[in-house]
Design a protein around this nucleic acid. Structure first.
Lengths: 206, 206
DNA sequence: CGAGGATGTTAGTCATCATTAACGTCACCG
DNA sequence: CGGTGACGTTAATGATGACTAACATCCTCG
């Protein structure tokens, strides 16, 4: 059947095939979970069949590992860059929020896979991913600590995780609102939630 | 080996075994995903081995279906009860928040499974679960509409999903803070986020 | 006591799946 | 041309896993 493989994509060289596979796999993993997707499925999604993937990845787990490593790496790098570029903590937080929101709205499948499939990554890589995730969280906690001194870091860490949950909810509420509307809404909600968490004043009953 | 099966739990009758199995399965599904858990695994978790489960459930998918149906049913029922019992919208929202927070903190595994595994439920049951989920969301939207008239329902729906994400983040930030501290924090953050979403005043740039 | 029902157990059976083997094709480089 | 490397293909192979069968226990009720 199809033998125009190269004709369709002239000079499709470079790891373009790799990333194409990673993209397709991310969508499938997000939809059906790591164990719910077969190598055949992934192959089919990129037009080849099954074992062809072993030309690009050493195995299914390795593929997942590379995917998660890439995601957590990008998140952390972007965060670090935005924070150091910001003139003050206030702007740094804006940068962090914008970065996470762009990512969540732009790559819902990656976000989904990122916080569901860590458990399926084999040990060597898993540690590294965890490290990047931790660094990413600490980026937030540092900025928030500056913004809300007097608030214990453990509380800020919990608040950060909660805000991630809020921002990453996008994949679930798919299509409820157009992205141009969703982004500002999420930003406003996250800011309000963080401010509330940071100012533990008047933490009365109820 | 073990033959004291009944001696250990005298009159353990009634569906106690069923729920015991459902609990164990929920924990496993939450940790490794539906396809990452075998019938053998579930059996082992309740002290029996493998095929014994077919005495209680017609199959793996049926087990999942019953689990999700139970969860969404409980969430919706609790919400409906709290809302009709509340004297006004303000208190109704409190009830909804408390209900969701109690559930999220008390049954993290159930929450996790609930918003990950719907895709693995076979069709007859899936529709019903969706219906309950929709009703649950509408319970929130109705209350919020009363609290923030003038705010379009689609926006409130999106905000509701976002708040679910925030509240359900608990399983991820496991152990960061003790539940007695976490609950008020989540409540405060959710309230602030919702208020911000409801009052679309001053929705300036950035 | 004896039938019935509830609940388990251990050996299949049959699919599905990850991974490997063995074997093209084709572009490019010498 | 000849060969090398990138990429694919179609058959194994070997596990694992859901589900079924055939066969106990043992409690309970008559």
């Amino acid at each position: 059947m199809r033998k125009v493989t190269t004709a369709q994509t002239p000079t499709r060289n470079r790891g373009s095939r790799r990333t194409e596979i990673l993209d397709a796999a991310a969508r499938l993993f997000a939809a059906r979970g790591f164990h719910g997707v077969s190598i055949e499925d992934i192959g089919a999604a990129v037009g080849t069949s099954g074992p062809a993937l072993y030309r690009h990845f050493s195995g299914k787990e390795a593929l997942l590992a590379e995917m998660l490593l890439d995601i957590s790496g990008r998140l952390h790098a972007s965060a670090a860059a935005r924070v150091t570029a910001a003139p003050d903590a206030e702007n740094a937080l804006d940068g962090l929020l914008n970065g996470q929101i762009e990512f969540a709205l732009g790559h819902p499948a990656l976000i989904t896979v990122h916080d569901r499939e860590l458990g399926n990554v084999p040990e060597p890589a898993r540690r590294q991913i965890r490290r990047l995730q931790r660094l990413y969280v600490e980026e937030w906690v540092t900025v928030l600590s500056e913004l809300y001194p007097g608030c214990p870091p453990s509380r800020l860490r919990a608040a950060t995780h909660a805000v991630f949950g809020l921002l990453n909810s996008t994949p679930h509420s798919a299509g409820e609102l157009p992205p141009e509307t969703m982004a500002p809404l999420l930003r406003a909600m996250a800011r309000a939630a963080l401010a509330q968490a940071g100012n533990q004043l008047a933490q009365a009953g109820n």
